[in-house]
Amino acid sequence: MSARKPVLLYFYPAQSSFVVKDLRFMEQQYEVRHQGFLPKKKWQTPLVWLGQVVFLLRHIWRAQALVCMFAGYHSFFPALFGKIARKPCLLVAGGTDCVAFPSIRYGVFANPLLGRFARWSYELAAHIAPVHEKLVWQEYRYQPNDYPHQGFRFHCPNLRTPHTTIYNGYDADFWQPDLTLTRQPNAFLTVCAGLDMRFTQRLKGLDLILEVAARVPEAIFTIVGAPAGFRFPDQPVNVKLLPKMPLHDLKSVYSGHTFYMQLSMSEGFPNALSESMLCGCVPVVSQVGGMVDIIQGSGYVLAQRNVELLETLVKTALTADNSQRALNARNIIKENYPEGRRETELLGLLRQLTTSFD
């Protein structure tokens, strides 16, 4: 009879693709007991907290470690119980839990109460594992309406909890160009959830894309993630909307476009950007978060949130020979950010933490 796996408790605010991926990694070595923190209304948060406390009281004494994806309301009690029970709590910092953009009310630290719970979580955790160094601390110059620096150590200046960066990882065997498709040379692609919300449009730079589309009619701009029947007001004719789609179909869409645009005001380590690069798209990114480091010169960088600068960048991209950039983009993600690297480093860090607490 095989030895029983040690128990690990895993908490997350939404079951996103990266949560599912990390769960798959951890289930290889642990019996993972996981719980989402998903109140449908704000007033239900105390009830969800109560359920989380009950879950912790039932399982923490058997657990070897706890993991929280993102810092926020959902990470406070796991970090606190881990501290009390002397069980290491690893907090994975992914993006929104490291920033504050009051101008658009985005980021955990833009909300004073939520920011307080995030700070407490960071302080109580045994270790923090950001997906990129820029989530720890970064200079911010993309637009002038918010803080000149971002990162959890900027917003938690007295924080003593150690951190280890563990990059996101991607399956290069799955995410590869579909060579049966013809790639449109003048086509730009963006994938975005919640694109019908004005807040999301500004956060993800969709407003810039709509503006530049009107200025560069010879280009095609495709946005994936549109609800049924949705259209932007005064949508340019060269902007095409597609619905949210499964990963296999998304791979085909990546393979049909030459460029992938990620013009966000804030990002950590965006999945769609990395997936598109593996599928041979040339990246066009804002100078935000880890994106400039991730693309490593294989694409184009918008230094400031300015439509005139973007227009120049788009026209430059359209007239350039991008064949080598596309090859470089795929190789950068394949060689530097393989799925196996995240798996090895995440499980290695958990082993290190549990050993130090024994």
Rank of each mutant, 00 (worst) to 15 (best):
Y10C: 08
I294S: 05
K5W: 06
V32G: 03
S255L: 05
G169D: 05
A93Y: 04
P227N: 06
A110G: 11
W61F: 08
D234A: 13
K134N: 08
A125H: 04
S252I: 07
R231L: 07
Y260C: 01
V92R: 14
L347I: 15
L263V: 03
V131A: 03
F154I: 03
R341V: 06
H132I: 15
A303P: 00
I84L: 15
F232K: 07
G229W: 13
I60L: 11
E345S: 06
A110N: 11
T222R: 08
M291P: 09
T258E: 07
G268W: 07
H163I: 00
L203N: 13
Y260R: 01
L189S: 01
G94M: 14
K83L: 13
N322W: 03
V282W: 00
L8E: 03
L9Y: 01
D207H: 14
L159S: 10
L38Y: 09
V314C: 11
P338Y: 07
M69T: 09
L47W: 01
Y254T: 02
A79L: 10
A219Q: 06
N271L: 09
R24S: 15
P243V: 04
H34L: 13
L318A: 05
W175T: 06
W61I: 09
K41T: 15
L38R: 12
R351F: 01
V288G: 09
P177V: 12
K83G: 02
A326S: 14
M245C: 00
P78I: 06
A125G: 07
R198E: 12
R141V: 11
Y300Q: 00
Y167F: 14
M265S: 03
L8T: 02
I333M: 10
F357D: 00
